[in-house]
Design a protein around this nucleic acid. Structure first.
Lengths: 148, 148
DNA sequence: TTGGAGAACAAGACTAGATCTCAATCGTAT
DNA sequence: ATACGATTGAGATCTAGTCTTGTTCTCCAA
């Protein structure tokens, strides 16, 4: 369990994709690099806009296709956080893992982490009639600004 | 804190609605009664279909309006379980509370309950910078049928 | 009991997130 | 270099959810 050489998530993703015999196209690279720079979840539309504004426009269909692919390989996690709009974030082992607080008043989404909760989920996953691969926890309520 | 007389969720909901000075229309009654007969979450479309097939057709706009209203009064909980489609279920205190396992292969949604998990969430809710009112937990993976 | 104010309702136009199609292009193994 | 399959983008299409509008119904007070 020694130190791994530092490797970006994007590099890791590229490696996994290569192992799965995928060609490496420009659209996919752009999405990977954008995702790698984020620390919380983005929607497909936000990704589309960011890429159009920034480095390289990518067709909407490509974005959804890439996100789908990455999700199937467990490289991103797809979240149904609040509205009827999916969000995606890089699936980093350990340190990046977090869940979300959603303010039902103003709609803000804030990430949080909690080791004890992770522990409880870990235990639970063994008791449940399913091979658990991911979990998603959303707390709803009123954020500090809104509860005054 | 004694025993309450047995009261259906629908009756409870009607009472709360009355307290909030809402008139009582036919569409809302139909939705209430349908929801009361379910033990897991329904989507708005499923509700629309069930009502059209069954007792009394109700306009789609009305269904969403009613569900919204019920959600604001905490009489139903809105869930973003799997696909980009919200699901709603009666919010019963205690005994009816549960969470969901989603099989990413076949899409089945199964409810489960777990006191320890509820406990962990309860603790967590105090540590977190938000007044927590609801929580939603979804475990993803492969169900028993699909993991063979 | 009746009349009126405002709540509830239905139909359907509309929006926006997501998917599908298909022809053109690109990557890579040979 | 070539061939073949993977990748891509434009735009059509689908569908959950929202908005608009005119009508109907509930409740309450006279």
């Amino acid at each position: 369990m020694g130190m791994h050489p530092p490797e970006t998530w994007a590099a890791h993703a590229r490696r996994v994709l290569a192992q799965h015999k995928r060609h490496s196209g420009a659209a996919r690279q752009a999405v990977l690099e954008l995702l790698d720079r984020q620390n919380c979840a983005l929607s497909a539309i936000e990704i589309e806009d960011a890429l159009r504004a920034g480095q390289r426009p990518v067709g909407r269909a490509s974005i959804y296709r890439v996100l789908d692919e990455l999700e199937r390989l467990h490289l991103v996690q797809k979240l149904q956080v609040a509205q009827a709009m999916a969000r995606y974030e890089p699936h980093r082992s350990g340190e990046g893992h977090h869940h979300h607080l959603v303010c039902d008043n103003c709609g803000t989404v804030t990430p949080f982490t909690d080791p004890e909760l992770e522990n409880a989920i870990e235990q639970l996953s063994r008791r449940v009639p399913m091979r658990v691969e991911e979990h998603e926890i959303v707390l709803h309520g009123a954020c500090q600004d809104c509860s005054n």
